[in-house]
Amino acid sequence: HNLTITQGKLFFHYNPKLCLSEIHKMEEVSGTKGRQERNDIALKTNGDQASCENELLKFSYIRTSFDKILLRWEPYWPPDFRDLLGFMLFYKEAPYQNVTEFDGQDACGSNSWTVVDIDPPLRSNDPKSQNHPGWLMRGLKPWTQYAIFVKTLVTFSDERRTYGAKSDIIYVQTDATNPSVPLDPISVSNSSSQIILKWKPPSDPNGNITHYLVFWERQAEDSELFELDYCLKGLKLPSRTWSPPFESEDSQKHNQSEYEDSAGECCSCPKTDSQILKELEESSFRKTFEDYLHNVVFVPRKTSSGTGAEDPRPSRKRRSLGDVGNVTVAVPTVAAFPNTSSTSVPTSPEEHRPFEKVVNKESLVISGLRHFTGYRIELQACNQDTPEERCSVAAYVSARTMPEAKADDIVGPVTHEIFENNVVHLMWQEPKEPNGLIVLYEVSYRRYGDEELHLCVSRKHFALERGCRLRGLSPGNYSVRIRATSLAGNGSWTEPTYFYVTDYLDVPSNIA
């Protein structure tokens, strides 16, 4: 807008934040220059609390790290170098490059900038070799853009010569660093050979998330399962459950009422301010606690030095998902009996873990797994792929695949051998790939016309006998059925096997 004052003059007093240069501009645009008398524009009460600059400061050096910015700028000295009290560095987070010096300023003089007072450097006698002032900004957020400017702080001049310097606002972004852990990993099994893994992005990506790394490792069953005799009275049979499938998407929606109208769909109840505040506090606490764990609990591995020492970490090797089922080394339970199943799973520490690289999504279907087997899954978020990966501390989750139908069934015939004193040795093959492992066998036998009897055969007993022995049988026709019990439950009964026990007292003698 054009402003013209045809008559009258300007009068400025007691404006401590208004620089004289701005008042002189007002004289020019209003056409009143030359009308004012000496005392109409006070030299001592206008701009006496402001830094009124008329020179431009330029930054000469900028260096960044993930949490620091090192700045240096060209030296500046007023005509009387004693008038320079120091520099004021202003900075704040700036997602967009549209910041002005006066953003967030209120009537009390406060604003949204963080201000650092910096002492002037030592003055050199040689004007050509003056030290460049600077400042190291610490405690910054990774991968965050900051708006920065600097200006001088000078003393009051009796001659009211307006001098000083100020830089333009520059924008500097800190470097990326390792992201925080992925949030809320959930693993479920939808079949006997697959596990579905879902997660949420890290709360602090500290860069642009480029991919996720998912490692999985087959877990050995508890050692007590191999040692305890679950045929003993009072000892509860062990059981394991597989990871249940995901709930429906509708039930997972946030901010939804727990109660549904019987007449149909209901609208979600909005969260109160107290609920939102509580969630923010919980989120802040979780982030602080995660940072504490990362800094205190997890110790970084030592990389190899120039002395030739090897990095103890196993090298990563990509495998196809079809090879995942046989990740671990199978060892027989008892070496003397080769027909026992290889369900003991000690994992070799030198073995390469299978892994998958996930790009542009937060889910993965891990296939080719062994049925009813526990897996430990390790999830890392990465925001750099080359020249070397920059990934987060791992988040861990466990899951067990679903049982395989008929995996616990005894394959092959049940054979028998009759000894003296009416002892019958029953023999059968253990299931080759049971659900988890076989903890015991149930032997059901009966003599024709009598009630059915049951015998429990422990895992250890089966390994020693290759089956079991029935003792003290009365003469007669017998039928026997056997079924295995694994961590997933009972298998199917075998087809009945028949044998006849004679009275050993009636056996004919070869003595003449």
Rank of each mutant, 00 (worst) to 15 (best):
381 A>K: 01
319 R>E: 15
407 A>R: 11
320 S>W: 07
446 R>P: 00
250 D>A: 08
434 P>Q: 09
471 R>I: 10
234 G>S: 10
391 C>S: 01
255 N>Q: 12
204 D>R: 00
242 W>I: 04
507 V>T: 14
447 R>C: 06
206 N>F: 11
267 C>Y: 13
490 N>K: 04
260 E>R: 13
343 T>P: 09
431 P>C: 10
324 V>N: 09
452 E>C: 12
497 T>A: 08
263 A>N: 15
419 F>W: 12
260 E>I: 15
504 Y>T: 04
231 C>H: 03
221 E>W: 15
265 E>N: 11
374 G>T: 12
495 E>F: 15
288 T>R: 05
505 L>C: 07
437 L>S: 01
475 P>T: 10
286 R>P: 04
374 G>V: 08
341 S>W: 14
461 H>L: 09
235 L>T: 04
272 T>Y: 12
246 F>I: 11
262 S>F: 13
271 K>I: 11
354 P>C: 14
454 H>L: 08
326 N>F: 08
226 F>P: 08
322 G>W: 13
276 I>F: 09
465 E>S: 12
294 H>E: 03
264 G>N: 15
319 R>P: 11
225 L>W: 13
311 D>V: 00
443 V>Q: 00
343 T>R: 07
368 G>Y: 05
395 A>I: 06
440 L>Q: 15
290 E>R: 08
466 R>G: 15
504 Y>F: 07
283 S>N: 05
269 C>V: 07
208 N>E: 11
414 V>E: 01
234 G>F: 14
227 E>T: 07
327 V>C: 14
331 V>R: 12
372 F>N: 09
421 N>F: 04
418 I>H: 04
343 T>K: 12
475 P>N: 09
220 A>L: 11
417 E>H: 02
215 F>D: 10
292 Y>M: 07
458 S>G: 05
225 L>F: 02
368 G>C: 04
463 A>P: 04
502 T>G: 09
487 L>K: 04
222 D>M: 07
323 D>T: 14
442 E>Y: 15
240 R>N: 14
329 V>S: 09
256 Q>S: 06
279 E>K: 02
442 E>Q: 06
375 Y>H: 08
369 L>D: 01
389 E>Y: 11
488 A>S: 07
395 A>R: 04
472 G>K: 14
442 E>T: 05
261 D>A: 14
496 P>Y: 09
457 V>Q: 06
402 M>T: 06
276 I>M: 07
454 H>F: 00
218 R>A: 07
459 R>Q: 12
442 E>L: 10
239 S>M: 12
474 S>G: 06
203 S>A: 14
360 N>R: 13
376 R>L: 08
300 P>G: 11
206 N>P: 02
460 K>N: 15
488 A>N: 13
383 N>D: 04
507 V>R: 12
235 L>F: 07
215 F>T: 04
247 E>I: 04
265 E>I: 05
475 P>S: 08
398 S>K: 06
352 H>R: 08
438 I>E: 01
482 I>P: 00
320 S>Y: 14
265 E>K: 09
404 E>N: 08
247 E>H: 09
255 N>F: 02
280 L>S: 06
486 S>E: 00
494 T>G: 00
277 L>A: 13
504 Y>W: 09
321 L>E: 09
295 N>K: 12
208 N>D: 03
448 Y>I: 14
460 K>D: 04
366 I>W: 01
276 I>G: 08
212 Y>A: 10
226 F>R: 13
359 V>C: 13
458 S>W: 07
285 F>L: 11
378 E>H: 15
385 D>F: 08
470 L>D: 00
331 V>K: 06
362 E>T: 10
496 P>L: 05
399 A>V: 11
352 H>F: 13
231 C>L: 02
248 S>P: 10
243 S>N: 11
362 E>W: 13
344 S>D: 04
312 P>N: 06
309 A>R: 10
240 R>M: 13
492 S>T: 08
467 G>D: 01
221 E>G: 15
324 V>F: 05
492 S>I: 13
281 E>T: 09
321 L>N: 13
351 E>M: 13
455 L>Q: 09
363 S>Q: 12
337 F>L: 08
219 Q>Y: 15
416 H>G: 13
395 A>Y: 06
272 T>S: 07
472 G>Y: 07
420 E>W: 04
223 S>T: 08
373 T>R: 04
433 E>M: 06
436 G>D: 14
458 S>A: 07
423 V>S: 06
316 R>V: 04
272 T>N: 12
296 V>F: 03
309 A>Y: 04
321 L>I: 10
437 L>I: 04
500 Y>D: 14
398 S>C: 14
418 I>L: 10
390 R>E: 03
210 T>S: 15
359 V>Y: 11
404 E>S: 06
479 S>F: 05
345 V>A: 09
454 H>P: 05
463 A>S: 09
432 K>W: 10
300 P>L: 05
449 G>F: 13
293 L>C: 07
348 S>E: 12
469 R>K: 03
242 W>R: 07
423 V>D: 15
483 R>Y: 02
259 Y>R: 08
321 L>P: 10
220 A>M: 05
488 A>L: 06
261 D>N: 12
381 A>V: 05
230 Y>R: 09
251 S>D: 13
480 V>M: 13
229 D>P: 08
418 I>G: 06
468 C>G: 02
343 T>V: 06
275 Q>N: 06
308 G>F: 06
209 I>W: 03
370 R>L: 15
362 E>Y: 14
210 T>R: 02
494 T>E: 00
502 T>P: 08
509 S>W: 07
312 P>L: 15
383 N>P: 02
313 R>F: 12
288 T>K: 15
398 S>T: 13
421 N>A: 10
421 N>I: 05
340 T>R: 08
236 K>C: 07
487 L>P: 06
377 I>H: 02
469 R>F: 15
500 Y>A: 12
500 Y>I: 08
408 D>I: 01
481 R>N: 06
235 L>P: 06
391 C>N: 01
223 S>H: 11
340 T>S: 10
252 Q>T: 12
437 L>G: 05
321 L>D: 06
372 F>T: 03
317 K>S: 12
489 G>R: 09
447 R>A: 11
433 E>W: 13
414 V>K: 02
437 L>D: 14
377 I>V: 08
466 R>A: 05
472 G>A: 11
209 I>Y: 03
280 L>I: 13
377 I>G: 05
310 E>G: 09
502 T>L: 12
496 P>C: 15
225 L>Q: 09
339 N>L: 10
509 S>F: 12
468 C>N: 02
401 T>Q: 00
340 T>F: 12
371 H>Q: 11
395 A>G: 13
416 H>K: 05
246 F>Q: 12
334 V>Y: 09
405 A>F: 13
386 T>E: 12
299 V>L: 05
473 L>H: 01
269 C>P: 05
350 E>R: 15
434 P>C: 03
494 T>V: 02
444 S>G: 11
440 L>F: 09
412 G>S: 14
439 V>Y: 14
417 E>R: 08
322 G>D: 15
499 F>T: 02
421 N>M: 14
419 F>R: 15
214 V>M: 02
210 T>G: 08
304 S>T: 04
477 N>I: 05
476 G>D: 01
389 E>D: 10
491 G>S: 09
271 K>T: 10
335 A>I: 14
295 N>L: 04
361 K>H: 05
313 R>M: 03
397 V>S: 13
337 F>V: 09
319 R>G: 15
484 A>N: 00
307 T>E: 14
349 P>V: 03
296 V>H: 09
327 V>W: 15
399 A>L: 12
366 I>L: 12
256 Q>T: 08
250 D>M: 11
389 E>W: 09
503 D>L: 04
312 P>A: 15
395 A>S: 12
326 N>W: 02
226 F>W: 04
317 K>R: 09
484 A>G: 10
338 P>S: 08
501 V>S: 02
483 R>A: 04
303 T>E: 09
356 E>D: 08
318 R>P: 10
388 E>A: 06
348 S>A: 14
463 A>V: 10
445 Y>V: 06
480 V>P: 01
354 P>F: 08
241 T>L: 04
344 S>R: 14
446 R>L: 14
457 V>L: 14
227 E>V: 09
304 S>E: 09
297 V>L: 08
505 L>S: 10
324 V>D: 05
433 E>C: 14
232 L>M: 08
427 M>T: 15
357 K>T: 07
406 K>E: 14
212 Y>F: 14
505 L>R: 05
468 C>F: 05
396 Y>A: 06
375 Y>D: 00
231 C>K: 03
